[in-house]
Design a binder for these strands. Sequence first.
DNA 1: CCTAAAATCAAACTAAAGTATGAGAGGCTG
DNA 2: CAGCCTCTCATACTTTAGTTTGATTTTAGG
Lengths: 153, 153
Amino acid sequence: MNYLTKYRSILIYGLSLAAALFLMKWLEWRFLILNHAFEIYAGIIALLFTGLGIWLAMKLSTPKIKIITIEKELAAEKTFVLNNKALNETGVSARELEVLELMADGLSNQEIAERLFVSLSTIKTHSSNLFFKLEVQRRTQAIEKAKRMELIA
Amino acid sequence: MNYLTKYRSILIYGLSLAAALFLMKWLEWRFLILNHAFEIYAGIIALLFTGLGIWLAMKLSTPKIKIITIEKELAAEKTFVLNNKALNETGVSARELEVLELMADGLSNQEIAERLFVSLSTIKTHSSNLFFKLEVQRRTQAIEKAKRMELIA
DNA sequence: CCTAAAATCAAACTAAAGTATGAGAGGCTG
DNA sequence: CAGCCTCTCATACTTTAGTTTGATTTTAGG
């Protein structure tokens, strides 16, 4: 109780000083704000529009997965080219290739003969020549090798 | 010659008028610029930073090629699952699958027998049971079907 | 037009592949 | 532990595959 009355003036003075200082500081801050209002505003605009730009780019950018489909198409072409190249290199004839494809489908020589309207002998001859050209002994090997060489699918 | 001296005053007057008008227009434009200097500046900033945002997005967007590798990994897992699933469905045993794989590599029954250290009879029994389970008649058909079912690679 | 390659066929083999049946040794499970 | 499945093997047989030789007919190219 006593202290309060005793040092009231000092207290008031101190409080006033504190308030004044606070006011000054606040005014200084206000001044800073006002003085740099343009820069701050410009900064906000810059930030906002950078965000807008990013959003736009995300929204409008075409997905990059299209590359895959292009590769697939190229692979198809490549297969065709390799087909011809391998055919020329091995010397496998068109008819022999037909027989080879049916072999790969699991048909027997008899079934292939019926499918191509020729005799069993003919298919045996074809396959024998085929094995020689592919340097294999069995039809299973021929199928395996032909697939590796991309002669057949 | 005559015309020039005759209408000099008119010409001068006209030119003065034109200059004045031009000056006014120019001043008006200047005024416009000055009056809207902030908006123009803000607009330029907006444009520039929108561009920056787009550039940033383009530059920093992660390439989507990673998805491909993920798909491949998933495919590998899927194959494993399908393998087991198909194995259970067809009832093909582990040993029969071994024989099947060697068949697909083009080996003869004799070669398979030697590779697995068992007799030719055993391989014949295995393959016969295999064909029954796969509902096929020949090894070539078995290979073809097993690959379609993803029992083998 | 003529020739070389490709396609066709046949016959007589040999070598694989595939079927059918039976049987023994282990291993897992109810 | 009995029953079932897998793996193993054998024997005897049928069917398919593959080779060899030789021949005729198309077909495409110089």
